[in-house]
Computed example of a mutant assay.
Amino acid sequence: MKESKLSVPKYQMVRNYILSMIQNKELSAHARIPSEKDFIEKLGVSSITVRRALAELVDEGIIYRVKGKGSFISDQKQKDQTRTKLITFVLSGKDMYDNSYMQIMKGIQSYLSKHGYKLIIEFIENDIDREKDLVKKLIQTDCEGLLIYSSDPEAAKEYLTDIQSKRIPIVLLDRFPMGIPLPCIACNNYDGGFEAVSHLIDLGHSKIGFCAYDFFLNSEKERYLGYQHALMNANLLTDSTNFFSRSKLDYEDLVTAIKKGNLTALFCVNDRMALEVMEQLIKMGIKIPEDLSIIGFDDFESSKYAKVPLSTVRQHFEKLGYEAAKLLLETSTKTQMEAKKVLLPTNLIIRDSTAPPS
């Protein structure tokens, strides 16, 4: 026993002695610990040694002092309940004040606040390198979990694999990479795309184009798959000349196709793209929906106030945030991370930008 005491610093002996009393339930929450004199006599240490040990335990929150009365054992259960628990939402997007982002944040905050968590928001202006650096720093902190809306999930595979190996609670929102089984939540992009194109077909359209925004994203590919299957379901062929991407979109060619009758309707992968296309075509003399029906996806707040109110597929962004936070806390209680994928339903919203072909 004597050899054991000499193997550690003397102040550590005092510290370990107090911790063993707590562990053996000789001292319970708010119980007064022995006096400095008691430790000196029992352990054969100096008053300076005792004070150093007590100061360290105070810093760690294990004991607390009351002036004129002594030192007492902290209530660890109460301490755990009052400790601020942090969740970080990493949002890599184009516009911090986009209403859809604000709705997601509102949903996350709504769920977390009910369970004693605080939300930290880290916004990055669509920069995958900054996104990587930020997340690598965050996983070194005491953050309890991460919600990530990545600008490029495929490019994020490196840090996502690191998170997976460290078993840090994480949920991906809206988009995710292939080949890394991580919890994620998104709207049902396939069904939404299928329903949007089926609506155009029901109106009598057969020459329906697809306009992508960032086609490397799985969410856009799933909407495109819904588009293809809706055409197949109506025995219509997919025409590769009617596939347009934001980076290669030639409005002169688009107008020519519309005027020749080769294109009567357009499914845009999101409202941002749909509103941009609509604005440019109207400037070039195309009437919406008389010359071209346009339907989007997302139902941004601005879509219903467009020059021609936009038909679209509504995502429930607040619900997305709420369910993402819920899934994250569920994930944090599991001993092993599950690649759970949650899909939320969408709704078709019909406004003035779609009509039967002229």
Rank of each mutant, 00 (worst) to 15 (best):
E323L: 03
T141I: 06
L343S: 08
T141A: 04
C211W: 08
Y101R: 06
N218L: 15
L200P: 06
A196N: 02
P309N: 14
P345F: 06
V8Y: 05
G296Q: 04
Y159I: 08
T238S: 14
S35D: 08
T141H: 05
A31I: 07
Q280H: 13
E144T: 11
D250A: 12
D191V: 15
E144L: 14
E158G: 04
V197M: 03
I258P: 08
Q76T: 09
I294P: 00
L147Y: 00
R223D: 06
I120H: 09
F300V: 15
E125W: 04
Y64W: 05
Q315I: 10
L112S: 02
A230I: 04
E56D: 14
E276G: 10
E154D: 09
N347W: 06
S150L: 03
Y97C: 14
L217M: 10
E301Y: 12
E144N: 12
E195I: 12
G193L: 07
K5V: 11
N262I: 11
N347A: 15
S311D: 03
C143P: 07
K77W: 13
Y64S: 06
M273E: 07
I286G: 04
A339Y: 01
L147G: 02
K118T: 15
S110A: 10
C211V: 08
C268G: 05
D202T: 10
P183F: 02
N126G: 01
R351D: 05
E26G: 08
T256H: 15
D162G: 09
L344T: 01
G68I: 15
S206N: 15
E276V: 12
N24A: 10
L27E: 01
Y227E: 07
K283F: 13
T333C: 13
L138V: 01
R351I: 04
D75A: 04
E290H: 11
D133M: 08
V171F: 01
Q336E: 15
K5P: 09
K118W: 13
S113N: 13
K287V: 11
I208C: 03
N270F: 02
E301D: 14
A186G: 07
A212G: 08
K10T: 07
H229V: 11
A230Y: 05
N126K: 06
R51A: 11
N235Q: 13
E56W: 10
I73L: 07
I48K: 12
S353D: 09
V58K: 09
E323V: 05
